[in-house]
Computed example of a mutant assay.
Amino acid sequence: MTKATPQDQKRLLDLQALDTKLDQLTHKARTLPQHARITELSGRMADLDTAIAASRTAVGDLRRELAKAESDVQQVRDRAARDQARLDSGAGSANDLQALQSELVSLGKRQGDLEEVELEVMERLEAHEGTLAELTTAHAALLNDRAAVEAERDAEIAVLTQQAQQVRAERVAMAEPLDDKLLALYDRLRGRLGGVAVAALRRGRSEGSGMPVPGTELAKIKATPEDEIVYCEDSGRILVRGEDAF
């Protein structure tokens, strides 16, 4: 049976308190509310990234469509300008001049149709550019929000890290006098029992299980020499007996 002085057993209990505090600090750092908020903001930004990419594609397509519409209108305008110049010059036969007049009428109608197409494309482009601007602004706002939350998280973690460093220093000092075999037993139990290897026995109740120790077992523990390690039957943890154990 493993032996340890009552003082070392009490030191194990204090060591457990420090390790529990370290575990709590680690858990708190891992579960800061900022983590969930950052995940949420990142998800919303990812959705906006997808929407922005689609909007940019639509805007690019419409700009090319508008350029073609403008080119088509300009070609008709240029053709009409040339025909009008020839008509104004009076050069050519009567049939030629009549043909030019007829073509100018057709070109005028064609220009009107193309200008309607151009206007419709311009309106769609303006709408898509407005949407893209809104999406981009929203993305920038989310980026700023996330940066602010990340700064809050980092500040919280810095405080927790400093606290953990202080506790670790206390732990080193607390563990230094203890026998290596005792520490190995303690570490092995911590790994097997969810981080808690040692608990106090107070007024007949095991703080390892939270349950009263049965009378026969309690009598057995009471009869065990103080320098022998005893265990909680329910939890398997080391029970440390203090002045208020029984």
Rank of each mutant, 00 (worst) to 15 (best):
L107D: 09
Q75Y: 03
E40N: 07
T136W: 10
L32N: 02
L22M: 02
D49E: 13
G60N: 11
K68F: 01
S89R: 13
T57N: 05
V105H: 13
E126Q: 09
A99F: 10
Q75N: 06
E126S: 11
D113L: 10
E40K: 12
H27L: 02
V105P: 00
T31M: 09
R56D: 03
A51M: 12
Q16H: 02
V59R: 09
T20N: 03
L107V: 03
L119E: 13
G130V: 05
A53W: 04
R110D: 04
A133I: 06
T39R: 09
R30H: 12
L25V: 01
A17T: 03
S106I: 08
A17G: 01
S55D: 09
L41Q: 02
Q101I: 03
A91L: 12
L104M: 11
S93G: 14
L100G: 10
Q7A: 10
Q34T: 07
E123H: 14
V73C: 08
E40A: 11
G130K: 14
D96A: 15
T131D: 11
R44M: 12
M122F: 13
A91D: 08
L13C: 01
G112K: 14
K109G: 06
G60Y: 02
R63D: 03
L97R: 15
R79M: 13
T57A: 07
Q34D: 09
L12T: 01
A36R: 07
Q24A: 02
D19R: 11
L62H: 06
R37D: 06
R86G: 05
A80H: 03
E103R: 11
E134R: 15
T31W: 05
D78M: 08
G90R: 12
G112D: 08
T26I: 06
D19W: 04
D61V: 12
R77A: 15
L87K: 13
A51P: 00
D96K: 15
V73A: 11
H139E: 08
R63S: 07
G92N: 07
D83H: 10
D47K: 05
A91W: 04
R82A: 08
A58F: 04
E116P: 02
Q84R: 11
K21N: 06
S55T: 11
V121G: 04
K10I: 00
Q34M: 06
T39Q: 08
L25Y: 00
E116R: 15
V73E: 06
G92Q: 09
G90C: 05
T20R: 05
L119Y: 13
S89W: 03
R56E: 02
V76H: 02
K68Q: 09
A46M: 05
E116G: 15
S42A: 07
L15W: 01
G108N: 07
L66T: 01
Q16R: 07
E65V: 10
E134Q: 15
L32G: 02
L119T: 14
A36H: 09
Q84S: 09
G92K: 12
A54D: 14
D14S: 13
G112A: 14
A133H: 12
G108H: 06
D8P: 00
G60E: 00
L125Q: 09
D96Q: 14
R86N: 12
R63N: 09
E118Q: 15
K68I: 07
A17M: 00
Q75T: 10
L48E: 06
D83Q: 12
A80N: 04
A133E: 02
G92I: 08
A81N: 07
S55V: 06
